[in-house]
Every structure is written in C-alpha cells, then in structure tokens.
Design a protein around this nucleic acid. Structure first.
Length: 307
DNA sequence: ACGATTATTGCGTTCTT
DNA sequence: AAGAAAACAATAATCGT
C-alpha cells in the first residue's frame, strides 16, 4: 500500500483483508476505513458512515504524512470543492450584525448561481446523484460508486448523453462498473433500481462500451455462483465446491457457448449433491432464471470432465 | 422430483442467384 | 456479394416413471 498514493484518514490508515467471510455469499471480505465489503458479490456488510476525524492526511512515497484538504471525490459534480456560505455565525462563533448578514445573503445567492455554471454541470450533478441512489439501492460498495461516477463523467464529456436520458446513462454506468468488476448484477436487477426501462439502459451501456472501450469481460459462471449460493442459503463449502467446478469447466473449455446462468446452476446442483445436500433442480433453476432441463444438461457436461 | 423425448430458437455455415 | 436454406447446438416444454 505504500507504493500507491492514496488518501486515508489520520486514524485508520490502511486497507485490510480480514479473515472473516461474507455471511451472504461466503466470499472474502475487504475492510476499509469506511465500510466492509464482500469482494465476491459486492455487498456492503458494514457501512459505518462515520467520518473519523476531519484531519485528512496524505501519505507521500516516504510514508510521511502531509496535511491537505479533504480528498477529491468523483461523486460530487464539483469534486467536493464547493464552498458553502454559512448562516448566523462567523468563523469565531459570534453572531453577525444585520448588515453583515444581508451582505452574506447576497454573496450566497451569487455564489449559488455561479456554482451551476452550465447546463452540463447541472446534468452532471443530477447524474451523479442518480448513481448514488442506484448504488445505495443495490447495496454496492463505495469503490463501485466512485468508479461508476468517474465513468459517468467520461461518458458525458464524450457527448454520450445526447439523445439519451441522464437516468439511462447513470444506470448504464452502474451496470458497466458491475460488469467490469464481475459482480454478477444482471441488467434486470439494475433496471429495477433505475429510473429508466431496460432497453434504454442497454442502449446506453452498448454505446458506452463501444465508444469508451470499457474493459468489459464476458459474464462467467463464477460471477453467478456467489449470489446464487446466497439465495439458496447453502453452506460455504458447497459454494466453494461449485466455484471450483465452474473454474474447471472453464479451463477445460466445456460449456463454451452455454449460458453462464445455466452453468452456475449445474455447478451448484452437483456440488450440493456431492456433499449429500439435496437441492431441487426446479428450485435452483428458478433462482438462476433457467430451466431444470438446462441444469441437467450442464451437470452432465460437468460429470464428463470430473470423472 | 427426476429423466427422456420432442419442440423451439438463435446462429454460423453453405448453397444459390 | 446478397440472400436463402439446410444444419447444428442450446434451451425449454412436455410426458412418463
């Protein structure tokens, strides 16, 4: 961590990976000073929202601390640099005279006009707040939110908002970030939290993907497994076995051309069966959004490579 | 609930014009 | 080269046990 130039608070510096597992999907858990988040499913486990001290410190290459302002954040349209003009009291806590107060009121009015310099800036602020809303609704991590916000900025500066609703671009930013991080959130899930229909989200996502050349990876079966396992409430070792199976299937090249949801369903079914846990094919298939037939078919493929 | 069989659909290839 | 057609694989529906 010393090599990376990161902003941390004065009290709680380093990012640590704890030994505990995500209770939801059993994945490994990463704890920062702000939140505890599962690396597999992207779910926030603890979000303290505690600002531990206003004393922001920046570590330079030598590791020594230097005072700076608060870290820049991509989630505010002005990157958190805006100035708020307060009411009632001055910097020393004394009340203000009426003339002084009128003066400040005028200043505040002018400043709030100046803050929204252009329509683009207003749109940006709206888009970012929309992203914050969607990310919170999906329970995703702060790092994902920041990535999505950065993506939105890029999309806007590349003129990708023209002819598209800001809601769609915002939702697409979240979905794209989820895809790039292999979080396994489906388009339908993001749409459910978004204020646009799925077609618009798809359209915005496709355009962003092409124009911005996002590092999108194909959805893998392993992306599905943590969340499926969580919904099925299977024990950890079953989830792990299923992940191993999916990994093997991927390496061996079977299941190429098969839908990842079907592969994941087959992996979980077989993994559960191997430890003597009886899960109904129908139930897994329903949760995975596939059919028992497909599940069986994938399971048979897995049987071919593991025996 | 599971397996087997059959129907459908999407897609890349091949054949035709 | 553009479109039509036979062919294949994956998935889904249905039936039988």
């Amino acid at each position: 961590m010393a090599t990376r130039d990161i902003y941390t608070t004065a009290f709680d510096g380093d990012v640590q990976t704890t030994a505990t597992d995500c209770p939801d999907c059993g994945g490994s858990v990463r704890t920062t000073d702000r939140e505890t988040v599962c690396e597999d499913c992207g779910l926030i486990l603890e979000d303290t929202q505690l600002d531990r001290g206003p004393d922001w410190v920046r570590r330079d290459e030598q590791g020594s601390k230097r005072r700076t302002g608060a870290p820049l954040t991509p989630t505010r349209h002005d990157r958190g640099l805006s100035t708020e003009i307060g009411y009632k009291r001055d910097a020393n806590g004394n009340t203000l005279s009426s003339t002084k107060r009128r003066h400040l009121n005028r200043l505040r009015r002018e400043q709030s006009r100046a803050r929204w310099q252009s329509k683009a800036e207003r749109n940006l602020a709206y888009g970012l707040s929309e992203i914050r809303r969607i990310v919170a609704s999906l329970g995703l991590a702060q790092s994902i939110r920041n990535q999505a916000c950065s993506l939105f900025r890029t999309a806007q500066s590349e003129q990708l908002c023209r002819g598209r609703s800001l809601e769609a671009v915002a939702a697409a930013s979240v979905y794209a970030t989820s895809r790039c991080n292999g979080l396994g959130r489906s388009r339908a899930e993001v749409t459910a939290s978004a204020r646009c229909d799925q077609n618009r989200l798809t359209n915005a996502y496709t355009v962003m993907n092409v124009e911005l050349e996002l590092p999108t990876q194909p959805v893998k079966a392993t992306d599905w497994i943590p969340r499926l396992a969580a919904k099925l409430e299977v024990p950890d070792h079953v989830r792990r076995r299923a992940l191993e199976l999916a990994q093997q299937a991927r390496e061996r090249g079977v299941t190429i051309g098969c839908r990842p949801s079907g592969v994941a369903a087959g992996c979980l079914y077989l993994a559960a069966q191997r430890v003597g846990l009886c899960l109904s094919q129908q139930r897994i298939a329903d949760i995975a959004g596939t059919s028992p037939t497909t599940l069986r078919s994938r399971r048979d493929d897995l049987l071919d490579i593991t025996t």
